[in-house]
Design a protein around this nucleic acid. Structure first.
Lengths: 109, 109
DNA sequence: TACTAGTACATAGTAACGCTGAATAGCCAG
DNA sequence: CTGGCTATTCAGCGTTACTATGTACTAGTA
């Protein structure tokens, strides 16, 4: 199932991370840990960092460097207005897809 | 939303097509039309054909050439046993993802 | 000092997938 | 014979997540 999930995550992982950031600002390491807690046990750190850089460059988040007690300074990401708009759009798209797939799954039986 | 949907379809479109074939065998042109009927209005024909070749090469479908009344012969694809197993796996993976995302969406409010 | 482990971020290279755009080919109506 | 519908194929592209590795800081410990 790993490979199927990998492909499914394309396009959704971004929304997942944005949804996490919608609740409260967070930094990469924290987000990765949060994903693991939510059941996404196999998501590599590198994947998350690359994604964060992407959404930062798109202007969906604001970034602030915060010193850490242990280790390098944290880059704390906060969803901004543009990011919120984008996230709403994500939910609309997701709902559209999930609904159609649910229909298919129903009709199968 | 188009671009978001494109990315989301990665990994799911394959399952969608397999689910369609689970109901009854079909050929490419027919499947594309069926997708449009189901609300996937923007899926290009080329995309579907490429996907069909992929699942054929993976041995998930059996293929039969059937002459058409109008136009070139049809390649009719039928889900085989292996394809059915793969489809079940797809549903499990999808349910896993959809559930976790639903949690996120709930928690957001 | 040297080591280990945990925290925290970054990146080059790869594979997979869906999209774009075009080509090919058969059939039929005007 | 031209346009439109049926039907398939393919080369090239952009985006995304994964792999694997590297850097850097702190704290504990032998």
């Amino acid at each position: 199932m790993r490979k199927q999930l990998t492909e499914m995550l394309k396009g959704t992982l971004e929304g997942i991370v944005l949804a996490i950031l919608a609740k409260q600002p967070a930094y990469g390491y924290e987000i990765t840990a949060g994903l693991r807690d939510r059941g996404f046990t196999d998501i590599a750190e590198g994947t998350v960092y690359a994604l964060l850089i992407r959404i930062e460059q798109r202007g969906l988040v604001d970034v602030e460097k915060v010193p850490s007690e242990k280790g390098p300074p944290r880059k704390v990401f906060a969803l901004n207005a543009e990011g919120r708009t984008y996230l709403e759009e994500f939910w609309r798209t997701w709902d559209f897809l999930a609904e159609r797939i649910a229909d298919l799954h129903e009709g199968e039986k």
